[in-house]
Computed example of a mutant assay.
Amino acid sequence: MVRRPPEETGETTERLGSVLLPRPDISPQRQVARRLLAALAVLWVTVLLVYLDRGGYVDNSDSDVTFLDCLYYTTVTLSTTGYGDITPASDSARLVNILVITPLRVLFLIILIGTTLEALTDRTRQQWRLNRWRSALRDHTVVVGFGTKGRSAVQTLLSTGLGRNQIVVIDPHGHAVKTANAEGFAGVEGDATRSEVLIRAEVQRAKQIVIAPQRDDTSVLVTLTARQLNPRINIVAAVREEENAPLLRQSGADQVITSASAAGRLLGLAMLSPNASSVIENLIQQGTGLDLKERPVTKAEAGRSPRDCPDLVVSIVRGHRILAFDDPEAAELQLTDRLVVIHRASRKGPEADIPRGGLR
């Protein structure tokens, strides 16, 4: 039997069904300051209203209602103390008390007990945010595992222009999900081998999923579950051992990356040819120096040789086959082909990439 990784729990202010949505982090001091300023604003608006209509009020101690009397009346009224020594006597003053001052009194009390009220309404607010997030989420990317591999994959996706709101992280550890949440990603805490956890991440509507857990058996189970929930999703999975790669492909993965053997090959290359290993390291780091990318053939390139392209063509993808740039079958590019090319990260667009001869 395959052992699944344990699911740890953790407290968070944005938890709802183990889904965490990013939000601005406001310190307690700022929250208290905001409420104090709002309370003072309500207090002074009420003082102004009473002072402007001071002729409609009666002071039992004397007949003159001063500004101090207005301030005193406002404080005892908003705090619902109400000693009764100053009272509205005219119809206009009473009408203002009914229509304006009473709602201000309620608002003042809400501000004072804002912490308690916020706690009571927090779940409703979270449910509303979660429903809005789910309704807007389409063709997004799910990343299973926010460890070293998962974070590197996320950084590469961000460097290609993918927005943070289009990435959902799944991890069984609460601290990893909190870290992803703090970086602006929606997070789901749970075991990704369980279908309900993947459903929380809306994998059934996702465009692609990156599977990078700590164990190979977990990768296989997540791949099987994701493929069952979304037959059209593009699955890229990582395994530690090369012998598990065929099993992962049979489980439904479109691309399988063997992390241990890939790292070993890079180490061996660094020993034999340090400069070549540096170039490869540069290529796999998106957004710096040279980038390796896949793009479609343009109309201007169709019917021409790969050597005539403005980019340095590495391979040609034709159907389900990958052809080398010097393959006789790839001597003439087709409009339906896709090219794996090297281009400069600092320049945008296929026509502005590496000039012909710039890398040759």
Rank of each mutant, 00 (worst) to 15 (best):
V2L: 12
P5A: 13
T12E: 07
R23F: 06
D25C: 03
P28E: 01
R30C: 05
Q31E: 12
L36F: 13
L36Q: 09
A41I: 05
T46Q: 04
L48Q: 06
L49A: 11
L49R: 05
R54L: 03
R54S: 06
N60K: 13
Y72W: 12
Y73V: 07
S79E: 06
G82R: 12
Y83W: 03
G84L: 08
S90D: 02
S90C: 02
D91Q: 08
S92W: 11
V96I: 15
N97R: 02
V100C: 06
L107A: 13
I110A: 09
I111G: 00
L112P: 03
T115W: 04
T115G: 04
L117T: 08
E118G: 03
L120K: 09
T124K: 05
W128F: 06
R132A: 12
A136P: 00
V144S: 10
V144T: 06
F146Q: 03
G147Y: 06
T148W: 08
T148R: 15
G150M: 09
G150P: 02
S152E: 12
Q155T: 12
S159E: 03
T160Q: 14
R164D: 00
V169D: 01
P172G: 06
H173E: 13
H173Q: 15
H175T: 14
H175V: 11
A176Y: 09
K178N: 04
A180M: 01
A186Q: 01
V188I: 04
E189G: 04
D191L: 05
D191F: 00
D191I: 04
V197N: 08
I199D: 02
Q204T: 12
Q204S: 14
R205C: 03
K207T: 06
I209M: 15
V210K: 08
A212G: 08
D216T: 05
L221K: 06
V222S: 08
L224P: 00
R227F: 07
L229D: 06
P231M: 02
I233F: 08
V236N: 08
A237K: 01
V239A: 04
N244Y: 11
L248F: 02
S251L: 06
D254A: 11
V256L: 08
T258Y: 01
A260M: 10
R265E: 09
R265Q: 11
L266V: 03
G268T: 13
A270P: 07
S273I: 10
V279D: 02
N282R: 13
Q285R: 15
Q286H: 14
L290S: 03
E294K: 13
E294F: 09
E301D: 03
P306R: 04
L312K: 05
V314S: 13
V314F: 11
R318L: 05
R321C: 01
A324L: 10
F325S: 01
Q334W: 05
P350A: 11
P350S: 13
A352M: 08
G357V: 05
G358W: 11
L359Y: 14
